[in-house]
Design a binder for these strands. Structure first.
Length: 273
DNA sequence: CACGAGACCTGTTCGC
DNA sequence: TGCGAACAGGTCTCGT
């Protein structure tokens, strides 16, 4: 489901609250229940329940597509993968059909992790780097300059689309924002990374930032039942617009498969390399 | 290192 | 209406 903008929006919602949901910041976890054991990547579910009880929520943020919840002792890291969602509800709310894990706070609220496809994962670790250590740079971090980005691209012979999806290369971009970025930058998804000029690399970075920021502004994209509340789907340039006219030139948007992912592009604006 | 295929999972939508 | 195929905001692992 979620990419950087959706995870950012979700992390903000948990941290600050979004009526009627209260903020989780400052709450203390009373207990946890694990309904689908594989949801907890580490430690084992039993140890997870014991360790997390009594810990207080000190901070909530995002790194790549991970929600990072800093607790008084450990760090709770959540990845929603394709269909995960976190819901804050009153204690009385029973576990739903898709609830894989729940945390109850001492003040009577609960955090439910729902995930139809069971791909989502959680880690409770004392060193967040043990989970997040291998990630590439944050695309919105000003420390990533156009020159640096060009150098990173120049070192890779891969096609742009799979490279943008590689979280070790750059963090947080998924299938939607990869396609949207490449269209905005007018680059074909199969263009080799090391063939980009300095200007093209700068344009790609700029496009990535523009679509991610627009996504965040709209609270992410909601394209089916999985993630709700976003509005960015109304601004899609190519994603899920197969055969519809390109907004630049009117050419029908084409859909191909790249690295087993549906890939949308305009054959005119993004000519074959 | 690059790349494709298969796993992990279940729900919705599409085509006949 | 029914039924199978295709498809889905992700990532890991294995073989070439």
């Amino acid at each position: 489901m979620p990419e950087l903008p959706e995870v950012e929006s979700t992390a903000n919602r948990l941290r600050d609250g979004r009526p009627p949901e209260p903020a989780l910041l400052g709450k203390t976890i009373a207990r946890a229940e694990v309904y689908w054991p594989r949801t907890v990547a580490t430690p084992a579910p039993r140890a997870f329940r014991q360790r997390i009880a009594g810990q207080k929520v000190m901070a909530i943020g995002r790194r790549a597509k991970f929600i990072v919840i800093t607790l008084s002792q450990d760090t709770l890291i959540i990845h929603l993968r394709m269909s995960g969602d976190v819901l804050v509800a009153k204690e009385a709310k029973p576990a739903g059909r898709f609830t894989r894990l729940a945390l109850w706070f001492t003040d009577g609220w609960q955090l439910a992790f729902d995930d139809a496809r069971k791909f989502g994962r959680m880690w409770l670790v004392d060193d967040p780097d043990s989970v997040l250590g291998g990630l590439g740079p944050e695309p919105l971090d000003a420390a990533l300059t156009p020159a640096t980005f060009h150098a990173l691209l120049a070192a890779r012979g891969r096609a742009l689309k799979p490279l943008l999806l590689d979280q070790a290369f750059i963090a947080g971009i998924g299938n939607i924002y990869a396609d949207e970025s490449l269209h905005l930058a007018r680059l074909h998804p199969l263009t080799r990374a090391n063939s980009l000029t300095k200007d093209q690399a700068a344009a790609l970075l700029k496009a990535i930032r523009k679509v991610l920021r627009a996504g965040i502004r709209r609270n992410g994209a909601s394209i089916d039942w999985v993630y709700r509340g976003g509005g960015y789907q109304n601004e899609f340039r190519v994603y899920q617009r197969t055969d519809e006219p390109c907004m630049n030139c009117g050419t029908p948007v084409r859909r191909i498969t790249v690295g087993q992912r549906g890939t949308h592009f305009c054959p005119t604006c993004q000519p074959t390399p």
